[in-house]
Each structure stands twice: as C-alpha cells, then as structure tokens.
Design a protein around this nucleic acid. Structure first.
Lengths: 139, 139
DNA sequence: GGCCCCGTGAAACTCTCCGTTAAGAGCGAT
DNA sequence: ATCGCTCTTAACGGAGAGTTTCACGGGGCC
C-alpha cells in the first residue's frame, strides 16, 4: 500500500500555507514549489484540487497567490489526502458482492483506523509542534 | 490509497485454507480459484509469495495442494498483506530527507494505525465470526 | 496596454498491476 | 519406466495510473 508523491506534495503545500496563514498575504505557487522542491506545474494541479475541495483560496493578478480558506486548526490531514486521492483507504473488496462479510468487516476496520487517525491530526498541531521544537533550542 | 486486487485475493485464499485447516487434506489451487472467482494462474503466483513468506506450505503430486503452515490463530491479516505488498503503509516521505519532521511524524502515526489494526486481526476470529453467524440462523 | 499570476487541457513518459503462456520438476499410480 | 497429476518458475504484454512538462487562455492591477 504505497501513497503517491502527490499526497506528500499536497500536505507540504498546505503546511506551507498554514505557516503563513497569520500574515495576510497570498503565497505564490513558485514560492511553495521552490521551498519544497516540488515541480511547479504539477503543484498547480494539486492546488486546484485543493481549491475545489474548499481547503484553499486563490487570487489572481499582481499580488496573487494562494492562502488557506480556513484556519489551520480546522483543516485535518485526512481532508487534504481525501482531496487529492478520493477515499483515504479503498479495497477492491468494497463493491465486490462476492466478498465474504467477515473479510469486508476487516477492510472496514482498517479503513476506520486510517481515517480516524487522519482526521485526528490538524495542521495547527503541526505548526505548534514545529515552533515548540524550535523553542527547545533556546531554553 | 487504493489496495490492489492481489491483496484481496491473498486474504481470500488464506481464509479458504484456514477454513479447511482442521481437515488434514491439502487444497488444490483450482479449488480455491473457482471458489472465489480468482484467475487460477494468477493465484499461483500469490500462493508462491505466501509460501516464501512462510504462511502456507505446498505439496506436489496426485493428492497435492496447499495448506496453512500455522494454525489460523497465529496468522494475522497484516502478515498476509505484508507478504504480497511489502510494507503495509508506505509514503514517499519516508526516505526523503527534505521532509519536515512534523510531517514525517504524521505519516508514522498513520502507518502505526494501520499496522496495529491489521496485526490485531487473526484468521481464527474470522472463522469463528462466520460460524457464529451461521449458528444464528438455527437458534 | 502590459505585466504578473493563476487556470486548463493535453501530450509524453515511466512504472506497476493484472493476467496469460509455456516449459520444468516432484510425487504417486499403473 | 512411464504417465498423469499437481506445484514451480520465468517471462511476456496489454492496460491503466502516476508524474512531469508544455502551451495557451484568462483575470486582476499598474
């Protein structure tokens, strides 16, 4: 079960926007791309998906760019992944009527485990964790 | 995050063998394949992987076939999946040094959630659940 | 208008998944 | 010994998804 780099790019992008959410300026695609070594043109596609998922907002023109549509505390890891991948956990067994019910229940348990954990992680925590860690150096 | 049909086939095959584990006869590939609508030649490859993973044993010749290498209570869902897919949960972020530590920790949490749940499911439970369910009809 | 940025679609490429084919090797019966 | 049954192994190829790049369109601000 391997995740795509797309999901990695997506969470990095959201994290980058979350960090700048307090400043009220938009962030350019190029900036995020350069910061994390993401192919800019690919990042554009990802950001569009995040936008249609209601996670970020865009602004064109001179001082254009992207910003979060909601505060980082209200955006979960799971939401971001679902935005770019559809269901977070999917097995061909779902949708196969011949799948024995015992097995279907197993897949459900696995799916719930991932989705539960993913929706429990919010980006505000990540920012806090990072700044907490930086503070450690000065104590 | 989409699982392959291979993983579905693998757990079905192991479940089929687990059900017959008390009878001391081997089960042919063809039998399992027909039972679950799995392409026989593909199932062969899967069974070989399960064999080299130490989950099943094979026997050639006239009364040949496959059987579990261990009792169903000692085989977990996770083991079967790992056998055919390598790591149960993998992100490109693992192995990317530029990945921020906060994010790496997120991926770790998700991985632990899946692996924990998967290793908690043993095939004996599945057999019990199924027979329990059948018993319900007669009460 | 001219610049800067996002928006969109499509092409090319790589890689994995899925299933098939075919030839080889162990076991038992005749 | 030979034959039939079954697993063993390797290789192939079509299909589809993921990744990246390119080119052009369009909105907003000076």
């Amino acid at each position: 079960m391997k995740l795509s780099v797309k999901s990695d790019y997506a969470v990095r992008a959201v994290l980058a926007l979350a960090r700048r959410h307090s400043s009220d300026t938009a962030t350019r695609v190029e900036t995020i791309a350069a910061e994390h070594g993401i192919p800019p043109n690919y990042l554009v596609q990802i950001l569009i998906e995040l936008k249609s998922g209601g996670l970020v907002r865009s602004q064109r023109g001179k001082a254009g760019g992207y910003r979060l549509a909601r505060p980082p505390a209200e955006i979960s890891f799971g939401e971001v992944l679902r935005c770019v991948h559809g269901p977070l956990f999917d097995s061909p067994a779902f949708g196969d009527p011949t799948c024995p019910p015992e097995l279907r229940q197993c897949w459900n348990r696995l799916r719930d485990a991932v989705e539960g954990e993913a929706s429990r992680i919010h980006f505000q925590e990540l920012i806090d964790a990072a700044s907490e860690k930086n503070r450690m150096f000065y104590i």
